[in-house]
Simulated assay, not measured.
Amino acid sequence: MYKILQKARNKLTKKIDTIPFIRYYAELAYQTELEKHISNLPIISISDLDLVNKIKHEGVVITSLENLKISSNSKLFQAAENLIPKISPSISARKNDFTIHASSQQIMEYPEIFLWGLEERLLNIVENYLGLSVAYHGAYFRRDIANQVEQGSRLWHIDKEDRKVLKIIVYLNDITEDKGPFQYIPQALTAKLVQSLKYTSGYIRDQTFQGVVSPANYRSCTGVAGTVIFAATSSIFHRGKPPVVADRFAIFFDYTSRRQKQLFYCNSSLPYNDLLLIAKNLSKEQKDCIFWQNS
């Protein structure tokens, strides 16, 4: 029942948001919030500031766990390697299924995965990109099956949960062009396509998409296990290219601002009771990122 009500709320809010004067005043409020928060932005290193600026201007930055040098990298990767064999390759009987997610029970068995997304340095990078306080929506550990299904996130789309959405993607196996890379359209071209397509939300099939943009403009994020992708998924057309020769294993860490009334799909990857357990030894700042809806 809750999900039905949430979908109805999202649909109504989206319709309201298209009304010109509503959009105008919403933009004014948003810009005011950004200006107020500037003095509260955490100070970050020059290299991290450069990373943030690249995300802002290019929409995607590809790096690696090795380059990031975050203290809990080894714990993350070891936990992921232990969990991979437990993610069954069997999909449900529904013919259009293409991905298997680790259950909340499995994530709680390996909390290092969820906790990596709360590393202070990462949160500071995210906050400097968003320009506002961070809401952490959790870690989504997924196995994308090598099949020909083109549904959901395998279709071209732009994330509309917030004005700015940032996802950090960690590849857990080597990803080549035929192993399901994250694909995107450069930010500048995306802006033009949004205008020409009059795009507001939803999914676009690749066959349809190729009618308006050449595949030569597709950018595939390939890389070895440990590759890390910072993706501003609210400002780029993107999709997960269907893997052909092998399944893709990856973790998606999702972030938005805490602007509750303007957000769609405000769920966490873990149930509330699990969040309480996993947050016991966290700092106040980290807890605020998890329990942002209560603040």
Rank of each mutant, 00 (worst) to 15 (best):
P42I: 15
Q78G: 05
Y184P: 01
G202E: 03
V170N: 06
D17A: 15
K160F: 01
K284Y: 10
W292E: 03
P89R: 09
W292N: 02
S196Y: 13
S64W: 02
F21V: 15
R143A: 09
P243W: 02
L275H: 03
S269Y: 09
N217Y: 12
G211I: 09
L115C: 06
L277E: 03
S103G: 00
T256P: 00
A8D: 10
S196R: 14
R239K: 13
P85W: 02
P243D: 03
I38M: 04
A188P: 00
S72E: 13
Q262E: 06
N73Y: 09
G226P: 05
T99H: 04
K192F: 06
G180L: 13
L275A: 02
K56R: 09
V126L: 01
L83M: 06
Y265C: 12
T208A: 14
Q31W: 08
P242I: 14
G180I: 14
V149Q: 10
I22N: 04
A225W: 01
I251E: 00
S74V: 12
A80Q: 08
N40Y: 02
T13S: 09
I44P: 05
Y129S: 07
A246T: 07
R239C: 11
D144T: 15
I229L: 10
N67L: 14
S153T: 13
K14V: 05
N124T: 15
T99Y: 04
L122S: 08
I290T: 04
L132G: 07
Y24Q: 09
P186L: 13
V212S: 03
D174K: 04
T99C: 07
Y218I: 10
D48F: 08
I19Y: 08
A225F: 04
N73L: 06
E112M: 04
Q151A: 12
G117D: 04
N128S: 09
E66R: 12
R9E: 09
R142P: 07
E27P: 00
K160V: 07
A146E: 10
K7E: 13
N273D: 15
V126R: 00
F98W: 10
F237Y: 08
K192M: 14
V245R: 00
E150M: 13
F182L: 13
A216I: 10
A246P: 02
A135Y: 05
L197V: 07
Y272V: 15
